[in-house]
Structure formats: structure tokens, C-alpha cells
Amino acid sequence: MTETAQPRPDRAGPRPDPAQNYTLKRNWAQTLSNFGMWGALAVALAWSWYPAEMDRWTFLISDAKNMRVFATDFMSPDFGDWRYYVREMVVTVQIALWGTFLAVVVSVPLGILASSNMTPWWVNQPVRRLMDAFRAIHEIVFAVLFVVAVGLGPFAGVMALFVHTTGILAKLFSEAVEAIDPRPQEGIRATGANVVQEVVYGVIPQVLPLWLSFSLYRFESNVRSATVLGLIGAGGIGQVLFESIRGFYYPQASAIIIVVIVTVTITDLLSQQLRKMAI
């Protein structure tokens, strides 16, 4: 044993004092607030029970026969028209690709303009509110509007994804910009560079990996969204799916759903790999 291994009274922490009672007192305020939170959740669930028609849950059992017919049709997918399904699926991915690409292009300047460390409040606040609006309205709503404006078909889907995704990406981009290290940017400014050059050399290299990752993630989500957009006539596989369900062609609908699942899984896996490479 060396000398340093000896207990050193001046370094030791406070020793337990046997005269003291060390039981931890219950924090009643915290306990009450916890009960309050759970109580509020219970009230909210009870309040929503009838409006959400949750009382119909018995039908799941009493009408199980319908479900069984439904299920058997779905269990025998009919891939007779697979070439058509794949072609429409590719169209869906193409819609997602263009919608995401346009959104990324527009989100770069909007993301910079929405960042509080890049622009004064009278620029970034209006831009942020506009992005809030783009984000608040669902793609489906935009798709309905664009179907009216530009007619049925894939282009309406592209525009719907473009607007909604811009709202999301511009916000994510600006959050990345707000988290940069300001010192490299100051280094660029000190050389006499202009504002755009400060952004190009000082800001974008810092945020590029994150931006790429966000964009790929949105592409992933947009492939999923684009399948749904077809339901309201904005082109792609969704339109085919909706038509088969409405015509009670369940084996065909089942085949289409399988095509969608496989495609979405492949895009997710690919995009995950790419995102890993980006960061």
C-alpha cells in the first residue's frame, strides 16, 4: 500500500451522520401534478369516445365474416397486370423525385432567409410564417387544389409535394444554419468577401451534410406520400389502387399494395445508406 492510497480526510466527501434521518421526503406538489396529468389524459379520452365512434368496436367481432371475405381476397394477390403496376409505381417515384428536387432548390435560399443569424427579423419572421403555412396544409389539400388548377395527373402531385416539402425543408435547413459555428463565416467576411460568398464558403460547407440528409429523408417520405396523392387523382400508383378498391378488385389491390411496400422499403434502405454516407 502506498501512502496515497490512505484515506484522506480533507478530500473525503461528507460522511453519513448517524444522528440524521436520511429518508427522502415525498414531493407532494410533484405527485399531485403527475396524478393531474394522467387524470387529464383520461378525461380527454373519455370525452373523445363517442365523437370518434369508438363504441362501434364490437362490429370488429360481430361482422368478422365480412372481414374474413375481405382478408381471403387480399390473401390471393393477382399480379396479372404487374407490368402496369410497376410502370405506375415508377411514375409515383418520379413524382416524389421532382417534388423533392424542386423543394430542395427553393429551400436553400428560403432556409438561409429564415435563419435568425443570417437575416434581420423583418426578413426571417415573414419567411418563417410563410413556411408555417406551407407546412400546416397537408399535401392532400394542396393536391386537391392543384388538380383543380392544373388538371388531373402527376403534375398536380408534383406541385403538391413541392409546396408542402418546401415548408418542411426550409425550416429544417434554417435550423441547421442557426446551429453553425459563426467563426469560419467571420473568417470569410474578414477577407472582404460579399454576403453571398460568406454563405457559399462559410455557411453551406458546414450545413451541407445535414441538408443532404434532410433532403433524402424527405424524398423517402415523399415516395410514401405520393402513393396516397394518387387517391385524389394526382397520378401514379395511388390512382390505380383507389380504382381497384372502389371496383372491389381486392386481389389486384393486394398486388398493388405489395408493390408499394416493396418500393417504399427499397427507397428507405437506399436513402438510409446514402444518408450514412453524407454525414
Partner: peptide, 29 residues
């Protein structure tokens, strides 16, 4: 600013860019 070079305690280079690009930034002005 172009006439005044500044060197900082934390170097203030852009870490992801090459050394060459960081130095070329000096001509921007």
C-alpha cells in the same frame, strides 16, 4: 476589409473545405 488580413485565435478556417480552398478565399475581395 480586403486590405486588412485578420488571423483569429481559433483559426476560423472552414473545416470541411480543403486547405487550398480556404487559402483561395483570400482572393474573393
Amino acid at each position: 476589409r480586403r486590405r486588412v488580413g485578420v488571423i483569429f485565435q481559433q483559426y476560423n478556417l472552414v473545416g470541411r473545405l480543403s486547405v487550398m480552398t480556404n487559402v483561395l478565399v483570400g482572393v474573393l475581395g
